[in-house]
Simulated assay, not measured.
Amino acid sequence: MTLRLNIGCGRSPTPDWINYDNSLAVRLARVPVLARLLAWFGLIDPYGLEFVDFCRHHRIRSANAARRIPQAAGSVEAIYASHMLEHLDRREARSFLAECRRVLIPGGVLRVVLPDLRDAAFNYLRSGDADAFLRHLQFDLDRPRGAGRLRLLLSGGRGHRWMYDRDSLISLIEAAGFVDVQAMAEGQTLIRRPGKLDLHERGGDSLVVEARNP
């Protein structure tokens, strides 16, 4: 039986798929007492504590997919990664795509959704608001202070590491060895059995690219 994976699912797991995330909340979901202790010391805010409970309730699994996707080679029919790739640096992104190729069956589909740098740049040129542009890019620009430093050590940086437009994303995925790499219109997919996958998730401000494993 082949599998379908939602990697970096955050608060949007897909029913009937296997959902992975690399958040500290997923690991803390296994030990809720520790999560509440960290919250008591102010190292996790109420929103983060609620996410721990969310991960436990939805049975989200922990994985650092830039290192290894915990599935056997050639066992996965489709992989979906929404607003996840931009949180990886270039080396991590290449490693993640290599892992996707390893676990996907021949002809398996990778679907990547992320913010469109081209749209962000056009919006900046229209508005001329540099501060809003940089906030929209969501890079880790501010150095945490005080307890924020410890929170960063516990959770890791959540900002963006790289941004892509259509051409640069297609080039990256092609360089990883995928074929039939193409931008997709919102709501469309090459995935044969998408099930309850939300094909409109983050629509309107996102770039969608799909590809096949050769």
Rank of each mutant, 00 (worst) to 15 (best):
L110G: 01
L134P: 03
H87P: 11
D129N: 15
L154K: 12
E86G: 06
A120W: 06
L125E: 12
D129M: 12
S155I: 08
C100N: 03
E92Q: 15
R91H: 13
P115V: 04
R151A: 11
L85M: 14
A147M: 09
A132D: 09
F139S: 02
L154T: 11
L134G: 03
V109H: 01
Q138T: 13
D116A: 05
L85Y: 06
L110F: 00
L150Y: 02
R126G: 15
R118F: 11
A132E: 12
R126S: 10
A98E: 05
R145I: 07
L97Q: 02
R111V: 00
P106D: 06
D116M: 05
R111P: 00
R118H: 13
R90H: 12
G108L: 06
A93Y: 02
V113C: 03
R90C: 10
R149P: 07
R111L: 00
L88Q: 11
V103P: 01
F133I: 07
G107H: 04
R126L: 14
D116W: 03
P115W: 04
L134A: 07
R135K: 13
I105E: 14
L110V: 02
G107E: 02
A120D: 09
D142V: 13
G157N: 07
D116L: 05
G146Y: 01
L110I: 00
E99T: 02
G148W: 00
A98I: 03
L88R: 06
R143N: 06
R90K: 12
D131L: 14
I105C: 12
H87Y: 12
V109A: 02
A132I: 05
D140V: 11
L137F: 02
P115K: 05
V113H: 01
L97G: 03
L134Y: 06
L114D: 01
G156T: 07
G156K: 08
A130D: 11
R151W: 05
V109Y: 00
R158V: 08
E86T: 13
L150D: 00
D142S: 15
D116Q: 08
P106R: 09
A98M: 04
R94Y: 05
G107F: 02
D129S: 11
H136I: 03
A132K: 13
S155P: 05
R149C: 12
R145D: 09
L152E: 08
A130C: 11
H136T: 06
D89K: 06
D140T: 11
R118K: 14
A147E: 07
